Simulated scan of single mutants.
Amino acid sequence: MSTPRKRLPAAERRESILAAAAEVFGEYGYSAARTDAIAQLAGISQALVIRSFGSKEALFIATAERVVDHVAEAFHAAIAGADERERVESRLGAAYVRLAEDRGALVTLLHLFTLGHHPTIGPIARESFLRIYTILREEAGFSADRATTFLATGMLVSTIFGLRLQSQDHPLAAELLQATFRENTGLVSDLFGG
C-alpha cells in the first residue's frame, strides 16, 4: 500500500509549479512547453496545474512575472549592498548571473522578451523590460548609454545560457564566455560545474 502524499499549502504548491514552469519554459519556450511536463516536474497532476493557473498562457505570464520579480529583487539588493568602493555594475552583473541558479529563469526571461508581438504577453514583456531599465536608470544611477549596454550584455548572458555555450568545449565559446562574464566567469563555472 502506498503512502498518501502530503498535501502542500497553496503558496508552496504555487511556487513549486512556477519553479518547474521556469525550467520547462526555459527549455522549450512558450509554444513548445507542455503543461504535463511542468506537472511531472512539480510532482503534481496536470489538472492541478491547469486548475491553479487556468491556462498555459496564464501560467507563462505568472512564471515570467516571477522571474522579473527575482531580477528586480536581486538588483535592489545589489544596489543597496554596494558601498562607495564597489562598482555597482559589477555587483548587478554578478546578481544577474546568480539568477541562473534558478534553472530556466534567465532563458524564460529571454523567451518573454521575444513575445512582444503576442497580444496578451507582449504588453507584459514591454512593461517588464522597462521595469528593469527603470531600476538601472533611477536606482543604480546609470546613464541611458550605460543602461542599454548593461541590458545588451544581459541579453547576451541569457542567450549564452539558452544555447548552453557554457558547457561547450570550444575555444571560441571559452573566449566568448570570458569576454562576456569577465570577473564573473568563475561564478558561471561554479554554477555549471565547468
Rank of each mutant, 00 (worst) to 15 (best):
R34F: 07
S31V: 13
R137D: 04
P171A: 03
E86Q: 15
G186S: 04
L130Q: 14
G43W: 00
L176V: 13
S143T: 14
E139W: 02
H170V: 00
A72R: 14
V88Q: 00
G162A: 15
A10L: 00
R182Q: 15
A179W: 04
D145T: 11
L92M: 05
F150T: 12
A95Y: 03
A140F: 03
L106S: 06
A174M: 05
A100G: 02
G194M: 08
T153W: 09
V157T: 14
R14L: 07
D169G: 08
T180F: 04
L8N: 07
L112C: 01
T149K: 03
E65W: 03
V97D: 06
L115Q: 13
V188H: 02
R91V: 00
S55C: 09
K56L: 12
F150G: 02
A37H: 12
G154S: 15
R103M: 13
R66G: 03
P171E: 02
A74G: 10
G26F: 03
R51L: 00
R5E: 10
P9Y: 07
G154K: 09
L112F: 02
A147V: 08
E73Q: 14
E138N: 12
V24Y: 01
E86G: 07
T120L: 12
A95L: 04
A173Q: 06
R182F: 01
E84M: 08
R51V: 01
E23P: 00
F150S: 04
L8I: 05
P4Y: 02
M1C: 09
A58V: 11
H170E: 05
I135G: 05
K56A: 13
E86K: 13
T153M: 03
N184P: 01
A179L: 14
S128G: 12
V71R: 02
V68G: 02
S52T: 15
A37M: 06
L99S: 05
A19Y: 00
L151G: 08
D69T: 15
A147F: 05
L136S: 09
T159M: 13
L136E: 09
P4I: 12
R14D: 13
L59G: 06
A21T: 08
L106V: 11
T148D: 08
I132M: 11
R137H: 09
I132K: 04
F142L: 13
G194Q: 13
A147M: 07
S55E: 10
S55D: 10
L172V: 10
G116V: 13
V24N: 03
A33Q: 08
E57L: 10
I79F: 07
S45L: 00
F75C: 01
A62Q: 11
L172E: 08
S189W: 05
N184V: 03
T153E: 08
S90P: 00
G104S: 08
A58T: 15
K6Y: 01
T148W: 01
R137N: 06
N184R: 11
F129K: 09
P119N: 11
L99C: 04
N184E: 15
R13H: 12
V49H: 11
A32S: 13
E101D: 10
T108W: 05
L106C: 06
E65S: 13
R126K: 15
T185S: 14
P119V: 11
G26N: 04
E57W: 01
R7D: 08
L165V: 10
L163T: 10
G193W: 02
D69I: 08
R5M: 08
